[in-house]
Design a protein around this nucleic acid. Sequence first.
DNA 1: CGTGCCTTTGAGAAATATCAAAGCCTGTGG
DNA 2: CCACAGGCTTTGATATTTCTCAAAGGCACG
Lengths: 227, 227
Amino acid sequence: MKLDPSLLQNLPPFERLNAADRQEVLDLARIRRVLPGKSVFEEGMDATHFHLLLDGHIRVERLNPEGEKVISLHIPPGQLFGIARALGRDIYPATALAVTECLILVWPTALWETFVERYDGFSTEAYKVVGNRVSEMNNRIMELATQHVEQRVARAILRLMQQHGRDSEIGTQIAFPVTRKVISEMTGSTLHTVSRLLSRWERQRIVQSQHRHIFVLDEGRLEKLTH
Amino acid sequence: MKLDPSLLQNLPPFERLNAADRQEVLDLARIRRVLPGKSVFEEGMDATHFHLLLDGHIRVERLNPEGEKVISLHIPPGQLFGIARALGRDIYPATALAVTECLILVWPTALWETFVERYDGFSTEAYKVVGNRVSEMNNRIMELATQHVEQRVARAILRLMQQHGRDSEIGTQIAFPVTRKVISEMTGSTLHTVSRLLSRWERQRIVQSQHRHIFVLDEGRLEKLTH
DNA sequence: CGTGCCTTTGAGAAATATCAAAGCCTGTGG
DNA sequence: CCACAGGCTTTGATATTTCTCAAAGGCACG
């Protein structure tokens, strides 16, 4: 199956390549389709590949020694991920899970050096991704260290909305199903506390949720709850 | 003042350089002496330089919008720091403070690219440092999200001991002064809770502290408290 | 149309912060 | 060389947040 080079057209890491190079990059890639709930790679596995998410949503999570889950981040379409090699790691530090059906380009890790050398802008973009993640991790640490659960949950929903929102008639909808449990794993909390908070916010018309679908009705008031 | 190239002898980022290159690297550097409590650079400042700590101990900290302090990490002698440029940042994301008197080599950020290209092993070591920090941040997030204050405080002291310990007659001493307040800022807690924990552990002969000096008497039992 | 998640809500328990006060080092300046 | 100011530490009492335990109802998919 031949991939269409326009796939890479608007993706930052490959934006500065000409058509021939884009074709070359695609010829080196394998494409993977991953069903919701299936993992792309698992924490501790050999980092044999690096990845670009073409479509869908990825959840990155880790387990602590007691088996409690902590969700690190969600990846929107268009981003590089699983690039352990950029930081000299040879195993994946976390598990990547498809939340919705995903379309992913994967390249063997051995090609990393080549990409960095040969493709203009690739390394800069890759390290920009790392820089953003580091910065998000820093913010996360600040929040966990200084804020209450309510503020952290508000911030988590706000972030999901901003990074994965799609407009709808009643407000902004988060683009993939999110349970109370998931939010608690994103915030270091429990599903009960999250449920109580969401119930309250629903009464106040700040959010609305049905089953696993969350809509933000009033971004401004949600933002106020974060501090 | 001429610097002695043997300064760089055993430092990983420059380990693979020959004597001439080491001299060159030193000629490009400026050396700074920073007194305890003084800052090397501050959060939000232009990242004009990157740094190598020759001697002393650096504390890296951030303030949240409410002015609460969060301590990110402590840097031991021999490490690169303030390398925002490695991740494409152009301002420092945190403040670096001398905890003890420090001796620091600094280079203008503009030299970063040159160092990466010209000096064998420099970039690899720099990204290894970044990789380690990312991994530590990840662990920190896991701890904050899933563990209780007692476990986090135990872990924080254990880490200080392992990374900055010096042997003494009664146990391992942390190499710089540490207050209850500092530990609370490392763990997202309060000085009162930390004080109560340390008092208890002192009664149990796990640690001993006088004024701002902490000794770990029983590493094994402290380790048990971390989970 | 029932089984397995998902959600809600209450009651009580536990962890930790906050408030308050007092005592203790130590480095400094007279 | 002494006294004292300012930071550091301890400890009690109380308040607050959040978790844990428990139970029941709801939704969706096979």
